Simulated assay, not measured.
Amino acid sequence: MRHRMTRVATLLATAAVMLATVPASAGAVRDVTVEKLSQRLFPLLDAIGRDAAARDAIMRSPGMSALLAARQQRSTACASDLACNAQALIWTDAEVQAVAGAVAAAHRLPASDDGRGAQARRELEGLNIIVQTYGLGQVSRYPKIDGSGPLEPLEQRSRLQAADWLSRTPRAHSAQGFDASVDYALALLDGGDRIDAIGFDPLTDGLNAAAMARAKSLDWKAYRYSAMIVTGVGPEVDGMALSPWGKYHLRLAASRFAKGETPFIIVSGGRAHPRATPFTEAEEMRNVLIERHGIPADAILIEPYARHTTTNLRNAARLAMAMGAPLDRDMLIVCNPQQSGYIESPIFAARNMAELGYEPGKIGRRLSPTELLFRPSPQSARVDPRDPLDP
């Protein structure tokens, strides 16, 4: 085993020398998967990579060239120390503040509802979280479902080395001309098979296509509620596609749908429990609604990314916006009495503010132990890569 590890280390070192000699003119090819992931997680930084004029304007900001050069020197000084290089790519508070200020003045770039500067801070902090969690093995906010999990030292080294190489190998439409950290973080996620954030994009197609098409000509005023949100409760057992609680939620949803007061059921739940499960909860929920409860496919929308109750509601609000549902009409949240009580509690409101920075909508009156009204907020469209599996 020791001989094998020594041989692998030698090959890695040799390859590093070879890669360093690759000329910059070798050409930049597209990687459509990484490209999609970049656009999804880092819309502003990705735009900087694509828009040369905007990038040049940011580079002309006082002190920016020196800042980026210092970051490059910090990384170069690490030589072959992979952990050192990962740490060198972390954005300091001062660097984040400087970039946010420069980006705020770059009017060619897209802006979120709270401005370009705030979005820049979220994206740079998101880069830090990815490097720290998936590169340096730091404990994540949700360690049971996030992070890489236990890794052999050789595999950890392999991922760090590949991320370093990929961050310096030209990729078309990338932000590499601005800073290496973007492609480095993307490579860490891709190398660890955690590209969850684009697993079902675009959400308007695929399993949602029929419902989205129906929504285009729907008379929303004919229904009391624009949609029903069915929250997920992920299983904690390996190999289990849907938890007993989830099956209860679906029986409730099918019974409520039969009353004819809502045109759509949004089933919400990602690939979360247990860690690295092959099952996407929303997809499994859709199957049960169709096969066991006879709900038409064009009445169901999957929201396959949420991994928490906070993002169940946020992502359902995003789907409502995508299908053109009026945001001044109530949606209906259906779930078990315990989760329903939690959703209307001050604890849940505080958690939204702490983790999202806003409330994804207004919780309305209670209709029953398992039903609450919900009015979605446009703030839910805000992209936040600090949760890189569901930004």
Score class of each variant (00 low, 15 high):
198 I>Q: 01
218 L>K: 07
191 G>N: 13
212 M>H: 13
202 P>E: 03
213 A>H: 15
220 W>E: 04
226 S>W: 03
201 D>N: 11
191 G>R: 13
191 G>H: 10
190 D>L: 15
206 G>Y: 05
191 G>P: 06
210 A>E: 12
226 S>N: 09
220 W>P: 04
211 A>T: 10
208 N>V: 07
200 F>K: 01
226 S>D: 02
203 L>A: 11
204 T>W: 08
197 A>K: 01
197 A>I: 00
194 R>G: 00
221 K>S: 12
213 A>G: 14
226 S>G: 09
196 D>R: 01
211 A>Y: 02
182 V>C: 04
198 I>E: 01
208 N>A: 10
225 Y>V: 05
191 G>Y: 06
184 Y>F: 15
183 D>C: 13
204 T>M: 05
208 N>W: 05
222 A>L: 10
196 D>Q: 03
208 N>C: 13
194 R>K: 07
183 D>I: 04
197 A>Q: 01
182 V>I: 15
217 S>R: 13
202 P>A: 05
225 Y>D: 06
198 I>G: 01
188 L>W: 08
184 Y>T: 05
185 A>D: 09
183 D>L: 09
220 W>H: 08
207 L>T: 02
210 A>V: 05
184 Y>D: 05
196 D>G: 00
192 G>M: 08
222 A>D: 09
223 Y>K: 09
217 S>F: 03
211 A>V: 07
203 L>H: 07
191 G>W: 08
212 M>F: 15
195 I>F: 00
199 G>R: 12
217 S>H: 15
213 A>T: 05
198 I>V: 05
199 G>I: 01
205 D>W: 05
215 A>T: 06
216 K>A: 15
221 K>G: 14
200 F>V: 01
207 L>D: 08
213 A>E: 11
193 D>M: 07
193 D>T: 04
215 A>N: 03
226 S>T: 07
209 A>R: 15
194 R>D: 00
210 A>P: 07
182 V>S: 03
219 D>I: 04
219 D>W: 12
188 L>N: 07
208 N>S: 14
188 L>G: 02
